[in-house]
């Protein structure tokens, strides 16, 4: 029972308190790149959730199954990035073959995810924090939920910004950054909560 509570708290922390975008700064490139419209943001979010949960499982298994027994821990960065790249390729092929509808929705986001630092970051943090297999899965999934939450909220804000008229130098990315700063201020309210 205690274990279950621990997992729930871990997930809540990953979504709100240690939000990937607003407190850990992981995955800023897709955050700025695909947050023009709420639907594309949601699509990207789902794709990240999918890949991050699977890659957390795969990297955990490879680290404790292969790297640790052979004392190759220092290769984790190379191994993980290759696993993630291969996994993304594989998911893409699998979806195209068996779930064309889902592929149609997520397909264009999948190649972008290989170089999304949130995915590699989650894999490395799972190892650094010493999570077991279930915790890694929960952490990977809930961090991606936090990422999705952030990117969807931000997309909503950006729709409003696109109607406003900021000073010329602030148009585009600068005003988006400042909006992100204000949302981050709201999210930093969660940091007082410690579990």
């Amino acid at each position: 029972m205690d274990y279950l509570v621990d997992i729930l708290l871990l997930m809540l922390t990953a979504v709100l308190v240690e939000n990937y975008i607003f407190s850990k700064f992981l995955g800023i490139c897709p955050f700025l790149g695909v947050s023009e419209k709420p639907d594309t943001a949601l699509g990207m979010g789902f794709a990240v959730m999918f890949v991050m949960t699977l890659s957390s499982a795969a990297t955990w298994a490879v680290y404790y199954g292969i790297l640790v027994p052979f004392h190759l821990e220092y290769l984790e960065t190379i191994a993980f990035i290759l696993i993630i790249a291969a996994l993304v390729q594989f998911i893409e092929m699998f979806l195209r073959r068996f779930l064309p509808a889902l592929y149609g929705a997520l397909g264009i986001y999948l190649p972008l995810i290989t170089t999304n630092c949130a995915v590699l970051g989650a894999a490395l943090l799972n190892i650094q924090n010493g999570y077991d297999f279930v915790q890694s899965l929960a952490y990977g999934f809930s961090s991606a939920v936090g990422f999705t939450l952030a990117i969807v909220i931000f997309a909503g804000v950006r729709v409003r910004i696109s109607l406003a008229e900021p000073p010329k130098s602030f148009r585009g990315v600068p005003i988006a950054m400042i909006a992100a700063g204000l949302i981050a201020m709201a999210f930093s309210g969660f940091s007082g909560m410690s579990f």
């Binding site: 407190s23 700064f25 950054m177 992100a180 700063g181 204000l182 981050a184 201020m185 999210f187 930093s188």
Partner: peptide, 8 residues
């Protein structure tokens, strides 16, 4: 120093 300051 907080994350929001970085964005701003």
């Amino acid at each position: 120093i907080l994350p929001s300051g970085a964005f701003l």
